[in-house]
């Protein structure tokens, strides 16, 4: 026992190094299982407030761009009102009323890591909960994975674990959209049936299957189609329609029916 203590004392630099690395790795692994990531929800409130004051400065410089985007959105909303007023489509297509939108402001965001997260300024107080979808005016952004009282933590599509259920707009085939960690503007469309031909510019939208995003929200457009040589599923490169580097305002989507659907599914899976 004494020898052990003498040994540890002699090598205290190494022992202390191993101890600190052990703590770091524990933190690292616990944050990989993303449900635990809010163990540091309190820190989020501290760093969050620093970022809030910082982004209030930088926002000023993005005002012009934001204005243009809002104007564009206004225009598209006007169009929606017009088309909703025509009685013809109201009878056949049931408008999806289960989804509720809340606006929020991006407080911190990154695009240059392998796993990117976004912090937004709405949290539990505004009834934001994990597994709600997040979109910008241009397209899908990510999914809420944790909340503190004033902030929510969003897993960006730019994340190794991100997998969005999507659909090819022109023929309704189901595909999945991933991110390969290279370029923040580009993602990967996988599981494309090999008999489907895709061309640059084809739109990829959400499928609505996950119940997180409503159907038909824009994800991006095809940039390059890579037909698989054998009869496997093909892949394509997609250009995300959301500009992750300029995100300032986002909408959080709540699906009122998701809890009900989830209980139903889990009842039959067990």
């Amino acid at each position: 026992m004494r020898n052990l203590i003498v040994f540890l004392w002699k090598h205290q630099f190494f022992v202390f190094f191993i101890m600190l690395e052990a703590v770091s790795f524990t933190l690292l692994f616990s944050s990989y299982s993303y449900h635990k990531s809010l163990a540091f929800g309190m820190a989020n409130n501290v760093t969050g407030s620093i970022y809030t004051s910082y982004s209030s400065v930088t926002d000023f410089f993005g005002l012009k761009y934001e204005n243009e985007k809002l104007a564009e959105e206004n225009a598209s909303l006007r169009n929606l009102i017009k088309s909703a007023a025509t009685p013809s489509d109201s009878s056949l297509i049931q408008q999806d009323n289960n989804y509720f939108y809340r606006a929020a402001k991006v407080v911190s965001n990154s695009v240059n890591r392998q796993n990117n997260y976004i912090l937004i300024n709405k949290g539990e107080k505004d009834s934001i909960a994990p597994e709600m979808g997040v979109i910008s005016t241009k397209g899908v952004v990510g999914i809420v994975i944790g909340t503190s009282s004033n902030y929510a933590y969003v897993m960006s599509i730019l994340h190794q674990n991100s997998r969005i259920s999507a659909r090819i707009k022109k023929n309704n085939h189901l595909v999945n959209v991933l991110w390969d960690g290279h370029d923040y503007e580009e993602g990967l469309v996988v599981d494309i049936p090999s008999h489907i031909e895709l061309y640059p510019g084809d739109s990829i939208v959400t499928s609505g299957n996950s119940l997180i995003f409503p159907e038909g929200i824009m994800i991006g457009t095809i940039r390059e189609y890579m037909q698989s040589a054998n009869q496997d599923l093909s892949e394509a490169i997609i250009k995300f329609s959301a500009d992750f580097n300029k995100l300032q305002f986002v909408y959080i989507i709540e699906n009122h029916m998701k809890p009900e659907a989830d209980t139903l599914i889990s009842n039959f899976e067990n």
């Binding site: 933190l27 690292l28 616990s30 944050s31 890591r113």
Partner: peptide
């Protein structure tokens, strides 16, 4: 803490 990358830079 600032980058939400707990443990990585540590």
């Amino acid at each position: 803490l600032f980058g939400n990358t707990l443990g990585l830079h540590t």
